[in-house]
Design a protein around this nucleic acid. Structure first.
Lengths: 334, 334
DNA sequence: TTGTAAGCGTTATCAC
DNA sequence: GTGATAACGCTTACAA
């Protein structure tokens, strides 16, 4: 493998000059540039970025810490991050944690060992104090989760508001007994959504009923488990508000096996607006999150931090949107 | 940020000794080890891996080049890779190409610039010659695609055989006019599957009919487009063999909008066995690929190459399996 | 058992 | 404009 020295020797110049050419400095004679270019081509030389990295103490890499990539929600956010990162010349590394706090800790050691310039957390389970401590030593951003007390930039939707809107929609359409299927208290976003759910009920004069609240996780299987528990109730609720499309689908699929048809017998609402929400049968009513934008903005915030560790921590809220499809029975206006 | 020098100074030893302690050499006096450990703790020292990386000329990183991560198939393969890599002390980087050859080329430059120790391609669109050339300069493995003529290790299922089995199953159950919906000639795996499809038909004395073959891609949308074209035929086929679950779902969903019910009116078979195949309504009959194992094996092959570039190129075929679910109408035995 | 010093491939700071 | 040369943080002969 040719190095910068080989190029310098062949071109009859110093390594400093080669470096200047490589980095497009403008204080090199055009003839010299040509000479160096020729040597580079002749040797098929590719700069070794490790040298530059060590010298500059920057890796041009970021780490994205994500619970899973099996859910399309994360792939879309990742795509937003990746495109923004790429445009800024950064490469993206991925750490999958399965929401395991220990694995999460292990991976963020990478940042401390200078393997990456910054970290984006998606739906982290880290608590405010830990996040603050970490962010003090390394540029970091929390996406999808707004942890108000933590001192780091965040970008997410307004989860409270989104759940409020969703449940209000169900109530407006005549559904009164509404079950809530969520990932539980592990995530701040889940807690906010639950508060939104409860607020909407109380607004309608309904006291939240613990027996209608199911914390099972955010997977297909979680939905299936929740449906199993729903079926053990004395009577089915009018509607289910699920905090992810996967969970909603798990619920619908399990109910279908018992011959219960969604929309006719019970309404189900999802969250995220993954592609499958559109293609499922029945298509899912869901709260749409701007997944790509969340990712894009997350990188932007991180980039700002990398360039200036002391810059202000912004908390960005992006808009959600209720996407109506036929999994929810609506009141017919006469 | 403390460096190895700071630790050495504080512990009153040389940097060489600190390095020995860090790398757990056994020729250091226990008292000295203790001294160094104390200094490390006191300074909260974290070794900067860039130094080691440059010195050893190894990054302990691999790059996975993948068309998309929106399809759960890839997330599962990735999980297999990542777990195997992690166990061997490697970190995983991700490059998403959208099957764009140019983007693919750009990313593999990373390997040449020594940013990674090796590359795994998932469903690459690179041709045999290009793969061979690349693999000659950098440890590389092709997963999901068996490119027989290329000189690099591969791991995949036997795509010809898998399609053969799938279509035979449809034929055995009385379906005669069978449409084929695939990603087209871009991938070698698609070509093999098509050959399997045609072979199965010919075995049954049926001449493949070009008007029943649709090359639209492997997304939900591709399935939707294919369904649009299916509906323009004089009469619907008995069954559809789709080469991915997403495509199959796209087909089913679009047909449903026209009131055509899968299983009763037409049978649809998928490929991959993503989770959604189990949770869809109707649940999908599909060819199951051992996604996790493909990923795991791919890393194993790459690891062998990294340790010995001259090691033999193995072509590993992993077993597939037909998963029967209700999207296919089966012949009732009397 | 420990220390000295030469590198790994770059870039940056000086001189000239 | 260009060239020496010192750094970046670490590992590893070799010497002691």
């Amino acid at each position: 493998m040719a190095t910068i020295k080989d190029v310098a020797r062949l071109a009859g110049v110093s390594v400093a000059t080669v470096s200047r050419v490589l980095n497009a400095y403008d204080n090199v004679r055009p003839e010299t540039v040509a000479l160096v270019r020729k040597a580079i081509a002749q040797l098929d030389y590719q700069p070794n970025f490790l040298g530059r990295t060590l010298r500059r103490l920057e890796t041009m890499k970021i780490l994205v810490v994500v619970p899973t990539i099996s859910n399309q929600f994360y792939s879309r956010v990742l795509k937003g991050i990746q495109l923004a990162a790429q445009a800024a010349g950064y490469h993206t590394m991925l750490a999958i944690t399965n929401s395991d706090a220990e694995i999460e800790q292990e991976h963020i050691g990478m940042a401390r060992r200078k393997l990456v310039d910054g970290v984006i957390f998606l739906h982290t389970t880290m608590k405010a104090a830990a996040l603050t401590e970490f962010a003090a030593s390394c540029p970091a951003v929390s996406a999808c989760e707004l942890v108000e007390e933590a001192a780091l930039p965040t970008v997410s939707i307004d989860d409270f508001r989104a759940a409020l809107d969703g449940v209000r929609f169900l109530l407006e359409n005549g559904h009164r007994r509404i079950a809530f299927v969520s990932a539980g208290g592990l995530y701040n976003s889940s807690r906010c959504r639950r508060m939104g759910y409860e607020r909407a009920l109380r607004e309608a004069g309904i006291e939240p009923d613990e027996s209608l609240i199911f914390d099972e996780g955010f997977t297909f299987n979680a939905g299936k488990r929740a449906a199993g528990r729903l079926l053990m109730l004395d009577r089915l609720p009018d509607a289910v508000f699920a905090t992810s499309d996967s969970t909603a689908i798990g619920v619908i699929s399990a109910l279908a096996q018992r011959g219960i048809r969604v929309c006719d017998d019970i309404s189900v609402m999802g969250f995220d607006n993954n592609q499958i929400a559109e293609y499922y049968l029945p298509p899912l009513t869901t709260i749409s999150q701007p997944q790509f934008d969340i990712g894009h903005k997350a990188f932007e915030l991180l980039h700002d931090k990398i360039n200036d560790l002391s810059c202000e921590d912004r908390h960005i809220l992006l808009p959600h949107r209720l996407e109506y499809r036929s999994s929810v029975k609506i009141r017919q206006n006469p």
